[in-house]
Design a binder for these strands. Structure first.
Lengths: 135, 135, 135, 135
DNA sequence: GTGGTCTAGACCACC
DNA sequence: GTGGTCTAGACCACG
């Protein structure tokens, strides 16, 4: 379910939280689904349990999962949460847009930025990083 | 040069800084142009000199103008500043866009938000507000 | 037994659950007492049976009542439940108090907050009052 | 400035964030004061830098400090923040109080809880901690 | 030098 | 078994 990209400059824990958020928001992981245990997930990705722990802590702090000590972590009910979050996001977005205009960036230009694919999305492309999987 | 909008919910000093930023960024006020003195500007707008003072302080803090004691305030050289600012802004923008996608907001939807005029911008237009369209 | 307050901003079902919780906690409705049927209660309050249904579901989920299909709903044995709940509540309370102190709110100030009646509490008293003092 | 209490069951990083919050809220550490570096603070307390790192991350997330990479962490301007936080806190407090009343806990009883010294507060008295004033 | 991330391995409390 | 905390030590990017 989770794939790590070591070429991505974002930290691992952030890739993990992002991916799980996506799965939860899209409903692929429904409410109350048990998350993989910290240790099993760490083994499956061949990384340190602490990294998973950190990712899960973030997810819990942001309301995407809830934790019962000794039992595990579970997908939270985000139905109410999402609406609020989106409103909050829109406010921030509009504020940033206005600020950008003050810097002389036109809305048209912003539109072009939106159309851009995310950097790092087509990883293999030009340089390909050479040694990649060396470790 | 500056017009205040008392319907705007933003504080006056913010309207003023915003407007001056725009004028400076667009090159209408070129580098080293002398800014109107605090007192004259205050009189011209019929507001308290403290408000102008605060606006100028903000502008100076943000690097748009510089002040020589006893002489007045002048438009700063923003050629270098602007590039950095824009880069910084773009980073923030792209980060916010990605965050929005995680909340399930499509880039298309963001585009629509961009197309919308900011609220408060057209106050005169829609309701027509009586005679204000005159200017 | 139940009085609705349409001036209250809380949803009706929440007013109902709250009131029943009070009645059960205070022992006015002892263990195994049969609850009014959904339909009769709805009629008595002149509201939609779904609202009562939802209130009862909440009460059941929280352990205040239990339901026997085809027979009705009955007040549960809360003797054990209440102790746990209270302990849990006290933990939360003490945690919140400490957090408040970190924000610079003194315990004395908190005491004053306690002395205040909650807003909206007296609305019913003034006008309607009705049978509330009955027990 | 910071003293750790190993008898306290709270995690170390939480003791540290709490103590710094207090120092910042009380104004003992004014705005823009540089925080001790992660490594120096860790050495001074004889604990692992990761623990300090975690504490500082929390403080930054909560708006008490800001960080400039490669430069250090600094006390943030909390003047605006505090008011909002307190309002938010009061809402939570009043909600919890109401919930407590539903559980049959009187406001008087809550008042008594407020008067209680925090548990773990007196520990130092008995043993006196020995020679802590060393620095 | 600074903060930030990650690993490896340990111990605790909870259920 | 589960999550949560902590240590020790490493490497990175930034300035």
């Amino acid at each position: 379910m989770i794939v790590l990209d070591y070429r991505d400059r974002r930290p691992l824990y952030e890739q993990i939280t992002g991916r799980f958020q996506e799965l939860i928001v899209k409903g692929i992981l429904p409410k109350d689904t048990q998350m993989p245990s910290v240790r099993s997930q760490a083994m499956q990705l061949s990384i340190n349990p602490n990294t998973i722990q950190r990712a899960y802590s973030e997810l819990e702090r942001e309301g995407y999962i809830y934790t019962i000590k000794g039992r595990g972590s579970f997908v939270a009910d985000i139905s109410g949460l999402l609406g609020e979050r989106r409103e909050e996001w829109k406010k921030q977005f509009m504020a940033l847009v206005e600020e950008g205009q003050l810097l002389g960036i036109s809305r048209q230009e912003m539109g072009r930025l939106l159309a851009l694919p995310e950097p790092g999305d087509m990883e293999g492309k030009i340089e390909d990083k050479g040694g990649d999987g060396s470790d």
